[in-house]
Design a protein around this nucleic acid. Sequence first.
DNA 1: TATGGTACGCACAAATTTGTAAGTAATGGG
DNA 2: CCCATTACTTACAAATTTGTGCGTACCATA
Lengths: 124, 124
Amino acid sequence: MGKRKENSTNMQNEKSIIEGCDLTYAVCMIGGRWKLLILCRLENGKLRFSALRDSINGITERMLTLQLRELEKEGLVKRTVYAEVPPRVDYELTDIAKELVPIWSQLSKWGAKHKKVTSQLMSV
Amino acid sequence: MGKRKENSTNMQNEKSIIEGCDLTYAVCMIGGRWKLLILCRLENGKLRFSALRDSINGITERMLTLQLRELEKEGLVKRTVYAEVPPRVDYELTDIAKELVPIWSQLSKWGAKHKKVTSQLMSV
DNA sequence: TATGGTACGCACAAATTTGTAAGTAATGGG
DNA sequence: CCCATTACTTACAAATTTGTGCGTACCATA
């Protein structure tokens, strides 16, 4: 999440796969350890940076910043800066991101339903 | 996807986050570049290794193997080996994985709908 | 005997993601 | 003047994921 190399095999691959596959595109947008987590925290409205940080267990400020930057570039969150000191910034979902609400909520339900079963399998 | 270090900060983090968060759990199960792709190829029934490989643009045999192994451990795909030569192996969704069908299909629709718009933003 | 097909495994290298531990700016309060 | 607050940056290190190229077993067929 430092910048990626434009011409790595990996990057080229990703681009050409995205061309033909909408699912891959979507996965690239919301994939990764934190993005969905962040988005779902914003489900009920604006939150400021510190509130997000505190509500997401285990995330560091660095990671939160990086992910928010990406989500912003991708058009999934809107960032608002207030000209105050100390600084105040808040984040909210865009309409595009709001369309994803049912998806993460189903995913979360699915997770809840199967967590026990499969985590036993995993520890084998 | 060589094995992960059991005691890395990263691993410990992931584990403790999963404990409290079903969404994170789900993301860990199906996250990554290929897993959803593989699952959705199996949506209409069994496929053998080579068929999967050929239907997923850009995946290498190594990656396909690794991902299938994980999906199997997680209980999302079932692997069947036939005692034949040359070898024949096929893969199919488990019931748990079948519950995810609506999720990736919605995600794919979402991707299709927004691909153009946001990929312009990304190239800026 | 040489070759071909299938589903992998392995070693190594490169790319990418994540974590850690520091700063920074601006301003209000003591 | 010193300190606290907030939302970040930056440099560096470690972990994880992905790609590349080659090798393997098996038996049927040519």
